[in-house]
Amino acid sequence: MSTQLPFLAEMDWHQVWYLISRPDNVPIVLLLILCPFYVWLAFREARKNDNLIAQLEADPELAKTHHRTTYPYKKGWPKTVQVWPHLLKREFLAMVIVTIILIIWSICLDAPLEDPANPNLTMNPSKAPWYFLGLQELLVYFDPWIAGVVLPSIILLGLMAIPYIDVNPRGNGYYTWKQRKFAIGTFLFGFLVMWVLLVIIGTFIRGPGWLWFNPGETWDHHRVDHQFNRDLHEFFGIEGTWPVFFFGLGFISICAGAIGGVTHACIKKMMPDMLKRMSFLQYQVTMQLWIMMMLVLVKIILRLTFVVKNVWVTPWFNV
């Protein structure tokens, strides 16, 4: 990895334009715009609701009579509206707009078609479809069985566990930040950093040979990186199958324990009612998922800063 960020004048703008104008990269350029926009929109609504909540908390009398949303409402107004026409006209409008966007997009940009498939000519870089590039980027940090199989499975199971481990009754059906800091913070970290950011790195940063190219750096197909991939135990001069095995196991346990301990202390201090509400099993699952996400981050940082290949080496698998 070259660590020097090229000055703007030295940037290869042709390379930048090539990458962002690839038809298949357009969705990631869209993501770069849409993700910040919708996160901003959600937080704008959340701030309004949080202000309203603060106002109602301060004034119990108002809380009894207020309609409890930030949208205008007067006494006597119906609480519901007819689906026809109020919802259906909007749905129709959305269909028209999406159709127009899709047709214009399709007229302006052609779907890519490369040469016919040729098993003897490897594409360099050969990349998965853009929405899987986060997982492909994880291949830099983990063996394929973790990056390609275990982590995606845990992501799916973790997502499915969310409604059963989030026992906070607040924020059901409205945007809020102050009432759900841990849940929203964790989810957005997972989505924006551990998924979207990795997709962006996999698309724009990883060039030939899956090497790291800073934005504006020319993709040099002949570049060779002389990296010393080292396992963590080699930093400490540990040798022999079992010492290495227990060193790795110990390191991961200590990391997990530290992350879990710090998180537990924070939750105890800042969110005592979260602890009270959760069953032992719910708390365990939450902690395991949280620790695993953080361990992935630790491995990414170790790899990018110290070029650590594995932290836990065993005769059967490496982590």
Binding site: L113, E114, A117, M123, K127, G148
Partner: peptide
Amino acid sequence: DQLGFWAVTVGTNM
């Protein structure tokens, strides 16, 4: 094409 072939090769290699 090459794009699909290598993308699916990478994907299924996992």
